[in-house]
């Protein structure tokens, strides 16, 4: 098996330069690649276009990159939790493209499946449709949306092996498997890194062919955004 292992986030993001387009997995703060985000912040890479469902919160996740003005453009579906984001957006400092969540997910999927575009009814008749081709199938209108192109896709998995095969846990799966398929270079950071043969092939969510670099992350905070409990 091909060994994809690198030692840490610093080695994983080697070759990432100013102005690149990144995909970052996660939904809210759930299943985000914490180690790589911290390393990108540390290295101060700037002028980035980030494709991610959300933009983190002010002091965690992609919010850390926003605070250091490393992001030139954000492509996301929901950004309601981030005051600094909203400030940069309303002041015009940050270029933002808001797109429907299913469109975001399926444009990743298309990239990983080698298809140039998808047709979706989401956004027909709204400002999301402006400038896009509309096609009618069976009496219903659909927007043509293009597959994403990303220089790097950065995902977080629960377990992975040295060949890059990945398994996600619970709803931390979210955008991670589809973004893992969509990067020109895909980096996976995992909580547990095992030898080949230790993962059941039937249980693999992302086949290692999609993953170029893998490492075991450290010091995961796994912050909870909305802690909700019921009475005992």
């Amino acid at each position: 098996m091909i060994n994809k292992v690198v030692n840490n986030a610093q080695e994983a993001i080697a070759g990432m330069t100013d102005g690149m387009t990144l995909m970052l997995g996660g939904f809210g703060l759930c299943g985000i690649p914490e180690n790589c985000i911290n390393e990108i912040v540390k290295q101060g890479i700037t002028g980035l276009t980030c494709i991610s469902n959300n933009a983190g919160v002010d002091d965690f996740g992609i919010g850390l990159m926003l605070r250091k003005r490393q992001v030139k453009k954000m492509i996301a579906s929901y950004v309601g939790e981030n005051a600094e984001f909203e400030r940069q957006l309303l002041s015009g400092e940050l270029d933002v493209e808001l797109i429907p969540q299913g469109t975001l997910a399926t444009r990743c999927l298309a990239a990983g499946y080698g298809m140039p575009a998808i047709f979706t009814p989401a956004g027909v008749g709204t400002e999301v449709a402006e400038g896009k081709e509309v096609r009618n199938f069976g009496g219903k209108d659909y927007l043509m949306e293009m597959a994403f192109e990303a220089d790097f896709a950065i995902v977080k998995a629960w377990r992975g092996d040295t060949a890059g095969n990945l398994i996600y846990r619970r709803t931390a799966r979210n955008f991670n498997p589809i973004m893992a398929m969509a990067g020109k270079i895909t980096i996976a950071e995992v909580e547990e890194l095992v030898e080949v043969g230790e993962l059941d092939p039937d249980h693999i969510h992302t086949p290692g062919i999609y993953v170029h670099r893998i490492f075991r992350g450290t010091d995961y905070e796994k912050r909870i955004e909305q802690r909700t409990v019921r009475a005992n």
Binding site: F27, G28, L29, C30, G31, N53, E81, Q101, G102, L104, A105, T106, C108, L109, W158, R169, R170, T171, A172, R173, N174, F175, N176, P177, I178, H205, K222, R223, I224, E225, Q226, R227, T228, V229, R230, N232
Partner: peptide
């Protein structure tokens, strides 16, 4: 979840901590 049983890997679309019922299925966003 009950207090102390929150799982950061298990949230709903509103980012709230939740639980799964028997027979649940997890999948990607696409």
């Amino acid at each position: 979840p009950y207090e102390g049983e929150e799982d950061p890997d298990l949230i709903n679309a509103g980012k709230q901590t939740i639980t799964m019922l028997p027979g649940s299925a997890v999948f990607d966003s696409a």
